[in-house]
C-alpha cells in the first residue's frame, strides 16, 4: 500500500467509500453469528462464574449475596461430589472404550465393498439420529423386566438368578446408561474412522502386498499409523463430550439408585434444576471446567513428549 499512497495523492481514489465497503464486508456477514454467540453463550458463561461466589437459591428470596469461597468449601466436604467424580471417570472410560472399539470394527467391516453396503451403512448409522432422550427411554424400557426382553435373556443365560431391572441395582445400574450410550455413539466413531480409512490411498496396500505383507501386518503397518491422528483427536474430543453428557443419565436413572449413577454433569443439572441452588451448581461447574482443562492440557503435554521422543 505504501507504493500506491503517493500515486493516490496525485490522483485520488474516486471510490473511497467503495473501498471501505470491501473492508467491512466480512464483518457484516459474520456479525449476526458473533452477536448471538457472544450474548447467549459468552455473557452467561461469565455471569455463571460469578454465581460460584454467591449464594443464589431460587427458593430463598433473601439469597444473592457474595459468600466468597463458601460454595467451594462446601464442595470440598461433599461426599456426593466425590462419588460423582468417580462415576464420571467410570462412565466416560467405559463409554469411550466400547464406542471406539466397536466403532472401529464397524468401520473396518464397512470399508470393503459388498452388495448392499449403502443400505447396511444407513441402517447401522441410524441410532445416531435417534434423539438422546428417546434412546435413554428406549433402553430403560428394554432393561425393564415388565416390557423389556433383556432381563429375561440374562436370566435364561444364567447371568441373573431372576429377571430384575439392572437400573435399580446399585452395583450394576451404571451399565444401563453406558449400554445406551455405546449403542447411540458407535456411529460417531464408525463414521469418523470410515472417512479416515477411505482417505488411505489403495496403492499403499498394493505395494505392501507386493512386498509380502499379510492382512494382519498391513493393518499394523499401514492402517493403524494412518488412523492414529484421527483416533487421537476423536477420542480426545469425545472423552470431553461424554464426560459432559448428562441426558441419558437424567432420563434413565436420574442419578439413582443411591447416587450410584450420578456423574458431575448430571449432578450440576440436578442441583440447578431440582434444588434450584444456582450458586452451588455454578461452583461445581467451575471445578468441572478446571478438571477438563487439566485433562486437555495433560493430553497436549503427553502428545508433545511422545512426538519429541519419536
Amino acid at each position: 500500500m505504501t507504493a500506491s499512497a503517493s500515486l493516490e495523492q496525485a490522483q485520488p481514489d474516486r471510490r473511497p467509500l467503495k473501498r471501505l465497503g470491501l473492508r467491512v464486508e466480512p464483518y457484516l456477514y459474520s456479525a449476526p453469528a458473533v452477536i448471538i454467540v457472544a450474548t447467549v453463550m459468552l455473557v452467561p458463561l461469565v455471569i455463571g462464574m460469578t454465581y460460584a461466589f454467591r449464594d443464589i437459591r431460587l427458593l430463598n428470596p433473601f439469597s444473592g449475596g457474595f459468600v466468597g469461597l463458601d460454595n467451594f468449601r462446601r464442595l470440598a466436604a461433599d461426599g456426593d461430589f466425590y462419588l460423582a467424580l468417580k462415576n464420571t471417570v467410570f462412565w466416560t472410560a467405559a463409554s469411550v472404550f466400547f464406542q471406539f472399539t466397536l466403532g472401529l470394527i464397524l468401520a473396518l467391516l464397512l470399508n470393503r465393498p459388498f452388495a448392499g453396503r449403502g443400505i447396511a451403512q444407513a441402517l447401522v448409522f441410524l441410532p445416531w439420529a435417534v434423539p438422546s432422550f428417546l434412546s435413554g427411554l428406549d433402553w430403560a424400557w428394554l432393561f425393564n423386566p415388565v416390557v423389556g426382553p433383556i432381563p429375561h435373556w440374562l436370566t435364561a443365560l444364567g447371568v441373573m438368578s431372576q429377571p430384575e431391572n439392572i437400573l435399580s441395582d446399585p452395583d450394576l445400574a451404571m451399565w444401563g446408561p453406558i449400554v445406551a450410550n455405546v449403542w447411540w455413539g458407535i456411529p460417531f466413531f464408525a463414521i469418523t474412522m470410515l472417512a479416515a480409512l477411505q482417505s488411505i490411498p489403495a496403492d499403499i496396500y498394493e505395494a505392501a502386498s507386493i512386498d509380502g505383507a499379510g492382512p494382519f501386518e498391513r493393518f499394523r503397518a499401514i492402517t493403524l499409523p494412518f488412523l492414529a491422528p484421527t483416533i487421537a483427536i476423536a477420542v480426545l474430543l469425545r472423552t470431553v463430550w461424554i464426560a459432559n453428557f448428562a441426558d441419558l443419565i437424567v432420563v434413565m436413572t436420574n442419578g439413582g439408585p443411591a447416587d450410584r449413577t450420578q456423574i458431575v454433569a448430571s449432578y450440576i443439572f440436578t442441583t440447578a434444576f431440582r434444588r434450584l441452588d444456582f450458586g452451588y451448581a455454578s461452583a461445581i461447574a467451575m471445578v468441572l471446567l478446571v478438571l477438563l482443562m487439566i485433562y486437555s492440557l495433560l493430553i497436549v503435554i503427553l502428545r508433545q513428549t511422545l512426538l519429541a521422543r519419536a
Partner: peptide, 30 residues
C-alpha cells in the same frame, strides 16, 4: 475473505465448543 478479525472469530467459535454447556443452565435461566 482474509480479514483481521477472522482469527478472533474462529477463536470465539472454538471456545464455545470447549466448555460444558451445563455450566450455562443457571445463568441462562436467570
Amino acid at each position: 475473505f482474509a480479514f483481521r478479525g477472522k482469527m478472533w472469530l474462529v477463536g470465539l467459535l472454538l471456545v464455545t465448543q470447549m466448555f460444558p454447556l451445563v455450566m450455562l443452565i443457571a445463568p441462562i435461566f436467570k
